[in-house]
Amino acid sequence: MFMQKVDRNAIYTVLFRSGVMFAERAPQKMHPEEELKHLTNLQVIKTLQSLKSRGYVSEQTAWRHFYWCLNNEGIEYLRGYLHMPTEVVPTTLQRRNEPVRMSRTSEDPRSRGPREGKERDDRTMYRRTERPNETDKTGNVGAGTANVEFRGGFGRGRK
């Protein structure tokens, strides 16, 4: 498919910056990406199919959408094609800066620490049984732990 170099460079730039790209399987629709609003989905699909055939992206399809992920060979190819320095990497390969989590104090009502007081006692009382030899319900869970009791007179066959 014939395409202007400016449009192909725009697609490659968006792909390199994010590392992934998608397109709906509606060829006449315009692409929703902000930098590619002037291109149709057909142009984006055909450009990325070209990269896929050369082994630079991997393609996934789901319902009416195509999804492409840039692999290591594709990163090297686009870095050379777009004349990018080696320090620039796609956002999929950048490490996220995890926000520093502040520890919550016990005065905070949303505190998720160990619960104390009445709530904790209610939970332990719920798990206890009335029988002296069985103290915890959690130990009595599973197949074969209950006493099997056969009582006649239930079900079919009894008139």
Rank of each mutant, 00 (worst) to 15 (best):
W68A: 01
V44P: 06
R112C: 04
Y67F: 14
T47D: 07
V89M: 13
M3I: 15
G153Y: 11
V44S: 04
G157L: 06
E87A: 15
Q94W: 02
A62R: 04
T138L: 14
G144V: 10
G80Q: 10
M30F: 14
R110N: 13
A26Y: 09
D7S: 11
M1C: 01
S53W: 00
G113I: 11
P27L: 01
S103T: 15
Q43G: 08
P109E: 08
D136V: 09
L48V: 12
R127C: 06
E134H: 05
F154Q: 11
H38S: 04
M21Q: 04
E76L: 11
R79T: 09
T13I: 02
R112I: 10
T92F: 00
E98P: 09
R120G: 01
Y126N: 05
E76G: 07
F2R: 10
N41M: 03
I11R: 01
S53F: 03
M1D: 07
R110W: 12
K5V: 13
R95H: 11
V57S: 08
R120S: 07
K29Y: 04
R95D: 11
V100R: 10
P99L: 08
T145M: 14
V6K: 14
T145C: 09
T40D: 03
R120P: 00
K37L: 09
L82D: 14
R120C: 04
A62Q: 10
E73Q: 12
R131H: 11
R96Q: 10
I75N: 04
E130M: 04
G157P: 05
V14H: 09
G80F: 06
F22S: 09
N133W: 08
T145W: 05
Q49G: 02
T129V: 15
G157Y: 03
E134N: 09
A146P: 00
Q28P: 01
Q49W: 00
F2K: 08
M1T: 05
T91P: 00
P90F: 03
V148H: 08
M3Y: 08
W68H: 00
E24S: 13
A62W: 03
R54Y: 05
N97L: 15
G80R: 07
G74T: 11
L15M: 15
Q4M: 13
V14G: 00
M30T: 13
L15W: 03
Y81H: 12
Q43A: 08
V14E: 10
R54V: 01
Q28F: 02
T91W: 02
K5Q: 12
D136H: 11
L39Q: 01
G142P: 07
T47E: 12
F16L: 03
A146E: 13
G74C: 14
R123Q: 11
W68S: 01
D122E: 13
L39C: 02
V57E: 06
T61F: 05
Q94G: 00
S50I: 01
R151E: 10
G113L: 09
R115L: 14
R54Q: 15
V148Q: 07
T138S: 04
S58G: 04
E34S: 14
Y12C: 02
R104K: 05
A23Y: 02
V100L: 08
E73I: 02
G139T: 07
R64N: 15
G142Q: 12
G152Q: 11
A146N: 13
E34A: 15
R128G: 07
P32E: 03
L15K: 02
R95A: 14
R17V: 14
G117L: 03
R112G: 09
E33K: 06
D108E: 08
P99S: 09
P27Y: 00
R120V: 01
